[in-house]
Amino acid sequence: MQLIVDNREQAPLDFAAYPCTVQAGTLDVGDYSLSGLEHMVAVERKSIPDLVACVTRERARFERELARARGLELFAVVIEGSLDDVRGHNYRSQTKPHAVLQSLTAWTIRYGVTWIWAGSPAGAAYFTYWTLEKYAAEAQKRLRAIVAAVNGSDIIPATKTPENAA
């Protein structure tokens, strides 16, 4: 599997522990995607300070990104922190935790965003890799079903690997 990391990502996640290659590229939405599927799936990475900035001073820019992401089949935001970090106001902004969380809730409904509280950069790499891997596996199943429906048989052989066994 080949991951694309947006070339504007300042400190890319470390995927050395995962069976993939990583290539820099320009993404219209998000920080990470799959090679060839950039128009279908993306993952955005946020630290807690970045997340709070997206709710406050960078809100208009971030909402434009969420609006662009609405056209994707899957858009997830992987947060390098915990819900308790926000609830406990473990950030510098004066913005109240309730306001931050209510913005995320509204954006879930308005834009269909999936929020993943990963806890750390290592957790963010884990959830980013596995979100993209599971998306690719499901897309492959859909493609097999389409080919079978059109041709009356499955001409794309199913392969079982440790990555798509679950």
Rank of each mutant, 00 (worst) to 15 (best):
S120Y: 05
R92S: 15
T114K: 11
Y135Q: 04
G123A: 01
Q102P: 04
W130C: 13
G88D: 07
Q94P: 12
L104K: 09
R142Q: 11
I109E: 09
T105C: 15
K141H: 07
A99K: 13
L132D: 09
Q94T: 13
A148P: 12
S93G: 07
Y126R: 02
A145W: 00
H98I: 14
R144I: 00
Y135W: 15
T105K: 15
T128Y: 03
E133P: 06
V100F: 03
S93E: 06
T95A: 15
E133T: 05
Y135S: 05
A122D: 08
T108E: 12
G123D: 00
Y126A: 02
S103C: 15
H89P: 08
R87C: 11
Y126V: 00
K141M: 02
Q102E: 12
K134A: 15
S120G: 09
P121V: 01
N151I: 03
Y111I: 06
A122L: 05
N151V: 04
A145R: 01
W130P: 14
H98K: 14
W117I: 02
N90C: 11
R87N: 11
Q140E: 13
R142V: 01
A139R: 07
R144Q: 06
L101Q: 07
A149K: 06
A118N: 05
T95R: 12
A145M: 01
G119Q: 05
I146Q: 08
S93W: 02
H89M: 04
A149G: 14
A149D: 10
E133Q: 11
P97A: 15
W130E: 12
A139I: 01
R87Q: 14
Y111P: 05
A139L: 05
T131I: 07
V100N: 04
A106D: 15
H98W: 10
K96C: 13
Q102A: 11
T95S: 15
K96I: 07
T131C: 11
E133M: 10
N151Q: 11
A149R: 07
N90P: 04
K141L: 04
Y111R: 07
L104R: 09
T105D: 15
P121I: 00
A122C: 04
L132A: 08
F127Q: 03
T114H: 10
S103H: 14
G112Y: 03
V147S: 04
Y91W: 10
A137V: 05
R110A: 14
H98Y: 13
N151W: 02
E133D: 12
Y126E: 03
W107C: 07
G123E: 00
H98T: 14
T108I: 05
L143A: 09
I146R: 11
L101H: 08
A145G: 05
V100P: 02
Q102F: 08
H89N: 08
G119T: 08
V147H: 02
E133I: 00
A148D: 10
Q94V: 07
N151Y: 04
R110K: 13
V100A: 04
R144A: 01
K141Q: 09
Y129A: 00
T105P: 12
T114G: 11
T105S: 15
S103G: 08
W117F: 09
Q94C: 12
I109A: 13
